[in-house]
């Protein structure tokens, strides 16, 4: 059989026009499903973004003994910077520590009035990539010569935060997957319904000698077009929502770590349009196949 995309595309467009109500229903269903799915991806992207930035704030502090030499400090700092779990190391000198302290209590100068510049110890503030590594890093610091009391790491807080946030992330992913599955079901049901209404047409085509592929191709093109149109509108709307939300959060929720980088708009559009197109194609393909056994 010759494959003539022009012929099949023309057939598909004609069928869409002639079955306009069914086509509009299929496009609308796709649109709504993809919109909900896109919103779920958006929400979960932003919540993961917030969780990510909260986790990033987890740090371990290692204090030096008052008599630590500069050599000892430099050596310790170099070693800690070499740990693979560590993302950033900041050295806080005694003077810096006092300055920070004064800054914190600037409204009550009597608290620090009598403090000498060498009372507060120098320390390393160590940012950790993954909070679950905090204990491992603390262990390494101990073998590097820091005693337990010279280390400050909020071990329990980290553990709790870690388990709560991973539950949240998995919950969000499960919800998104659920939306995806219901979209697939709903869209393919609509397609199946519209093809069911035309099963006699399919039967006639088969009886006058059309091959399965010849009957199926215009339907698949139709599904592809419907999926693309519905999903594209939904995806653009989702991205627009995202833009509005990030913009609004910037002024209304200034201390929330919400940024446009939490959701990759291009990626979202590509995924949503692809999902719409694939469901449209597969849905039509499978539905037509059911009626080809004539």
């Amino acid at each position: 059989m010759r494959f003539n995309p022009g012929f099949f595309l023309k057939e598909a467009l004609k069928n869409i026009r002639l079955n306009l109500l069914m086509s509009v229903t299929a496009v609308t269903t796709t649109f709504v499903c993809i919109l909900v799915l896109g919103t779920a991806i958006l929400v979960s992207g932003h919540i993961e973004g917030i969780i990510g930035s909260v986790r990033q704030d987890v740090s371990v502090e290692a204090f030096f003994a008052p008599d630590a030499t500069q050599e000892r400090i430099d050596e310790a700092r170099r070693e800690v910077e070499g740990y693979p779990e560590v993302s950033e190391v900041t050295y806080i000198s005694q003077a810096q520590a006092l300055a920070d302290f004064k800054d914190t209590f600037r409204d009550n100068p009597e608290i620090y009035q009598d403090l000498g510049s060498d009372v507060l110890p120098a320390s390393l503030a160590i940012q950790i990539e993954d909070p679950s590594d905090a204990e491992a890093v603390a262990g390494k610091l101990k073998s590097a010569g820091f005693s337990e009391e010279n280390l400050s790491y909020p071990q329990q807080t980290i553990e709790r935060l870690n388990s709560v946030t991973s539950y949240m992330i998995w919950g969000l992913r499960a919800a998104t997957a659920l939306f995806l599955i219901s979209s697939i079901l709903l869209i393919s049901m609509t397609i199946r319904l519209s093809i069911f209404a035309r099963r006699q047409e399919i039967e006639v085509m088969k009886l006058v000698g059309a091959s399965d592929g010849f009957v199926r191709t215009p339907f698949v093109f139709e599904g592809l077009l419907q999926g693309l149109v519905g999903a594209t509108f939904a995806a653009l709307l989702v991205v627009w929502f995202n833009y509005l939300f990030v913009d609004w959060a910037g002024t209304a929720l200034p201390f929330w770590p919400i940024s446009s980088s939490a959701v990759n708009a291009f990626f979202v559009v590509v995924v949503l349009v692809a999902v719409g197109a694939v469901i449209g194609v597969l849905g039509s393909f499978l539905s037509v196949t059911r009626f080809l056994r004539v």
């Binding site: 088969k206 009886l207 006058v208 091959s211």
Partner: peptide, 15 residues
């Protein structure tokens, strides 16, 4: 099954 169309193209039918 896949050769049925070939059979039907050889048979014109007024239903």
């Amino acid at each position: 099954r896949r050769h049925i169309p070939r059979l039907r193209r050889d048979i014109g039918c007024v239903f």
